[in-house]
Amino acid sequence: MSSKILNELKDHQQLIQRVIDTLTGDIETACEMIVTAVQSGNKVLIAGNGGSAADAQHLAAELTGRFVKNRKALPGIALTVDTSALTAIANDYGYDYVFARQVEAYAKPGDLFIGISTSGNSQGILNAFETAKQYGCKTLGLSGRNGGKMNGICDLNIIVPSEFTARIQEMHILIGHIMCQYVDDLFE
């Protein structure tokens, strides 16, 4: 195996160990936040930019479709998929409000808003967190580096202990899959 490939895999392995050592409790709390929302008849709204937008869509699809087992569909909505809404809001209000406006439109007290930002500083995600709180939502962040401004705004911010965007994104999808497995285990 080439040394570059081996180094990438070892870096990934070391980060997974750091996540195990430091984030297991936070991941369990995040799982409980999702279950509480959907068991109460509420929904999960998810947003992110770029690769994090893909993660938002992926997680919403796992909730509404299925993760591993056949179970009832659960209300997961990615706020990244409606191009007409995204472009109209960006045009009329600015890109920093594309998620906040959608949260305003869809959120109800008891819903869960999940914002994904590798830096923790994406203004559009921060604005969506503020709006979610105004509408009585619980808030969960998936970030990296030092957690950025999301630290002061989320009910829980899961901070992947890495500076490297690719590693942070890899851990976000792993954490997302763990949350989906937790949900699968509780619903028929």
Rank of each mutant, 00 (worst) to 15 (best):
G110S: 04
D111W: 11
A47L: 11
F129P: 03
T80M: 08
L9V: 14
F164D: 15
E8Q: 13
I168D: 08
G48N: 07
Y93H: 12
G147I: 13
D92M: 10
Q134I: 09
L126N: 04
Y95Q: 12
L23M: 07
I178S: 00
G115L: 06
D155S: 10
A88V: 12
M1D: 07
E8I: 13
R145F: 09
G115W: 05
L9K: 06
I89D: 01
S2T: 13
G120H: 00
A90L: 13
G120V: 01
C137H: 06
Q102W: 06
A90S: 15
G147S: 09
G136T: 12
G25S: 14
T165P: 02
D155G: 05
Y135V: 07
E188S: 14
D155Q: 09
S40I: 00
T118L: 00
I89S: 02
F99M: 10
F113E: 05
I173E: 06
I159A: 00
L79R: 13
G148I: 07
I34G: 00
H58W: 01
Q123W: 01
A132I: 05
M33D: 03
N42L: 00
E104D: 13
E163H: 14
S117T: 09
Q169L: 12
F164K: 15
N151P: 02
F99H: 04
D82P: 12
G115S: 10
G124N: 15
R66F: 04
L140A: 01
M171E: 12
L6V: 11
G148R: 05
N91Q: 01
A30I: 02
F164S: 14
K133V: 01
N42V: 03
M150K: 02
L79P: 13
T83C: 05
F187T: 00
A132E: 08
A61V: 12
N121I: 05
A61Y: 01
L156E: 11
C154P: 04
R71T: 06
F164R: 14
R101A: 10
T29A: 11
I173C: 07
R18Q: 15
G124M: 00
I5S: 00
K43F: 08
A56I: 05
L86H: 02
D26W: 03
C137M: 11
K108T: 12
V183E: 04
G147C: 07
A128Y: 03
G25K: 13
A47S: 15
Q39T: 14
S84G: 14
E130V: 09
T29C: 08
L86M: 15
F67T: 08
Q13V: 06
T118A: 06
G51D: 06
I173T: 15
L112A: 02
L142Q: 03
S3N: 14
Y93K: 10
A78R: 08
